[in-house]
């Protein structure tokens, strides 16, 4: 399998990969290009792979029809808070489960792992009731608190634990001899070394929060509070049909920044994910 490939084999592989790429890459291209076509062209036949004329007014409509800047901010700050919060909560818990001996550690770990078995969809009804009683419906609290402390962060805790388990025990012994207590060992030794794992936790968590859809539509009811995924689906005409060009423009604005960050940092991104405790 690892032998050098013949030129013919090489060409065949490149060809195969290019064909396979189409459904991965074309939708993004189509989204961006269609969003700048005049509305009359977006369903044109034959399909215009490259726009023949431009209409930038679509983009201004995105901001006119909804408080889109506000919604963008909502999504961004929620995702940022959730990401940072999850990194703190899960690195601490993951470290303790991997490294500290305390009574009932295994039982508690099993209880926490239950969170992996219970998708948030299962508990959405009681969560709604709980936040309703607390007066937090139509606020962002449910979208912040549940991911940081609840089921979604369990996966992050698991990833962190798997990482900390592999950290050489002698490093901590050395730190203890050097005079560090538990918390300082965690902060000065374990955490700095956990950067790759933290990076993938951050990526997962950010994407999870950024993509959250069910929770916002359950918990949020006014346009100022909406997050992006929810807002995108609200660009509809009087009959409830989608205003395609505006939806696509808003979708482009939502997707493109993350995509650009990804392309710039893709090496850390992909390798971070690959080299975390997920290898079985």
């Amino acid at each position: 399998m690892k032998a050098d490939l013949s030129p013919r084999m090489r060409t065949a592989l490149y060809g195969l990969m290019c064909v396979l790429l189409i459904p991965f890459v074309f939708p993004t291209w189509w989204m961006v290009t269609s969003s700048i076509k005049p509305i009359s062209d977006i369903f044109a036949f034959p399909p215009q792979l490259i726009p023949q004329s431009y209409d930038w007014t679509t983009y201004s409509k995105v901001f006119e029809l909804q408080p889109f800047v506000r919604q963008y901010w909502n999504s961004a700050y929620i995702a940022a808070l959730v990401t940072v919060g999850t990194m703190i909560v899960s690195s601490m818990a993951g470290y303790a489960f991997a490294r500290i001996k305390f009574p009932y550690a295994n039982t508690i770990f099993m209880i926490v792992l239950l969170g992996l078995l219970i998708p948030s969809e299962v508990t959405i009804v009681p969560l709604f009731q709980m936040f309703l009683k607390a007066g937090m419906v139509n606020t962002h609290w449910p979208l912040i608190l549940v991911p940081i402390f609840g089921a979604p962060s369990v996966f992050a805790t698991f990833v962190m634990r798997q990482f900390f388990v592999t950290l050489p025990a002698e490093l901590e012994d050395a730190a203890r001899v050097d005079g560090l207590g538990r918390f300082k060992i965690f902060r000065k030794i374990a955490l700095p070394l956990a950067r790759p794992a933290l990076a993938s936790v951050a990526i997962f968590t950010f994407l999870h929060s950024w993509n959250l859809f069910l929770e916002p539509i359950v918990f949020l009811s006014s346009a100022e509070m909406f997050t992006l995924p929810q807002a995108l689906t609200q660009y509809t005409d009087a009959y409830g049909g989608p205003m395609w060009n505006i939806q696509l423009a808003a979708a482009t604005l939502t997707a493109l920044p993350v995509l650009i960050v990804f392309v710039i940092a893709q090496k850390h991104f992909v390798e971070g994910l690959a080299h975390t405790g997920l290898k079985g």
Binding site: V89, I100, F102, A105, V112, V122, T123, F186
Partner: peptide
């Protein structure tokens, strides 16, 4: 050993309380 146990509980407390509040109690309620 006792100080380590305390540290352990403090480290997992946010996660454990979160699981109780946002997973176990809702699971019971559901």
């Amino acid at each position: 050993a006792r100080r380590d146990s305390l540290a352990g509980f403090l480290f997992i407390a946010p996660q454990l309380i979160g699981i109780i509040a946002f997973v176990l109690i809702p699971l019971g309620l559901v």
